[in-house]
Nucleic acid binder design. Structure first.
Lengths: 158, 158
DNA sequence: CCAATCAGGACTGCTTAAGTCCTGTTAGCG
DNA sequence: CGCTAACAGGACTTAAGCAGTCCTGATTGG
C-alpha cells in the first residue's frame, strides 16, 4: 500500500497542533486536543524533541513548543525522523547483505531514481502547506486513486 | 520506512525478466532465473496476469509473456496492481470511518497533495527506465539517504 | 489419456510496528 | 526542604499485515 507509519501521521498532527500556540503544551494536553492516546503522543514528542523539531521544558509547568517554524519543516524530514530514511526497498541504503537474489537481480539498485523522485516530492511540501490546505479547502477526497466510492457520508467541517 | 512490499519488487524483477524474451516462460523457469522462490513467482505472475500486465498460455508448453511493452508500464501501475492504491495514510480513499481522531484531526485529508505528488513521481518512471538504468550504470548505492555509512564492504560490480 | 502448466483460493508463520508501562531526572511551588 | 508535575529513555507486550506455502481445479499439447 506504500503505507506510512501511523506514528509519522501523528507527528504531523502534533506539530501542527503545537504551531497553534506559542506557549508550552503538555503531552496530556496535546493528547486531549488531538484525540491521540497520551502515551503515544508522549512517544512521538520525545522523538521529535530528540530530532530537534520541538523544544522541551522539563519540570512542573513544563511541556513542548515548536523549535522551528512549520514552513521550514518538510514532510520528508518528519518521515525521515520518525520512520527512518525514505527507501522503498531493502536493497538500498547499503543493507545488501540480506538480499538473496542479489547475484541475478536485474533491477538491483535501480530503485534509486524512484526513491530520489519520491524524496524530492516530499521535500517540496512543508507542514505549513498542509496546514494551509486545511484552511483554504474543505474536505474532499475524490479525484484520487479511486473514483469516489463514497461509501460513508463524510462530515464536512468548515 | 515508507516501505514497499517485497511482492512489488518481485513483480518488477519478473516483468523485466519477461521482457528479455518473446517466448513464453514458465514460472519455474523464471524462478530459477531470478532466484525468487517458485511459489512466490507463481503468485506474482497470477496477479500480473489478472491485471493485464502479462498474458498467460495454459496447458503443456504454456507460460507467460509480456502483454505490454516495458516502456508503457509505469512503476505506479505495478505498485497499484500489487500493493493496492498509492496512499500514505489510511485517512484517504474514503475509509474515514475507522479514524478515531477524525473530529479533531487538524490535517485530515491533507495528505492528498502529498499522495498526488508521489503518484506523479511514480507515474513518470517506466520499467524500461529502470532497466535502462541497469544497463547504463553499474552498481553504486551511495549518495542516497545516508552519508555512506558503509558498515559492510559492498561489492561494487563494474 | 496423460502430463505439464496456469487459476484461484485458503492457510500459516513471521516480521514489524503500535501501543503500553516502568524507572529515572528535572524543575516549580508550598 | 520536600512534594508534585512533567519530560527522558528504554523495555516489553500485543496486534496486524505480509510473505510464503500448499491444495484443488481447469486447460491444453503430445
Amino acid at each position: 500500500m506504500l503505507r506510512l507509519s501511523k506514528l509519522t501521521d501523528y507527528a504531523v498532527v502534533v506539530l501542527v497542533r503545537l504551531s497553534q500556540s506559542a506557549e508550552v503544551q503538555t503531552s496530556p494536553g496535546i493528547a486531549a486536543a488531538t484525540g491521540i492516546p497520551e502515551p503515544t503522543v508522549a512517544k512521538v514528542l520525545k522523538t521529535l524533541a530528540a530530532r530537534g523539531f520541538v523544544a522541551s521544558q522539563r519540570g512542573a509547568h513544563g511541556g513542548y513548543r515548536l523549535a522551528r517554524p512549520l514552513a521550514g519543516i518538510a514532510i520528508a524530514e518528519v518521515i525521515g525522523a520518525i520512520d527512518g530514511p525514505i527507501a522503498l526497498t531493502a536493497c538500498v541504503d547499503g543493507a545488501n547483505a540480506g538480499c538473496d537474489v542479489l547475484q541475478v537481480c536485474p533491477v538491483r539498485g535501480r530503485w534509486d531514481p524512484v526513491n530520489a523522485a519520491i524524496r524530492e516530492a516530499l521535500a517540496a511540501i512543508s507542514l505549513e502547506d498542509m496546514q494551509l490546505a486545511s484552511v483554504s479547502r474543505p474536505f474532499h477526497i475524490v479525484s484520487l486513486a479511486r473514483p469516489a466510492a463514497s461509501t460513508s457520508p463524510v462530515p464536512v467541517v468548515e
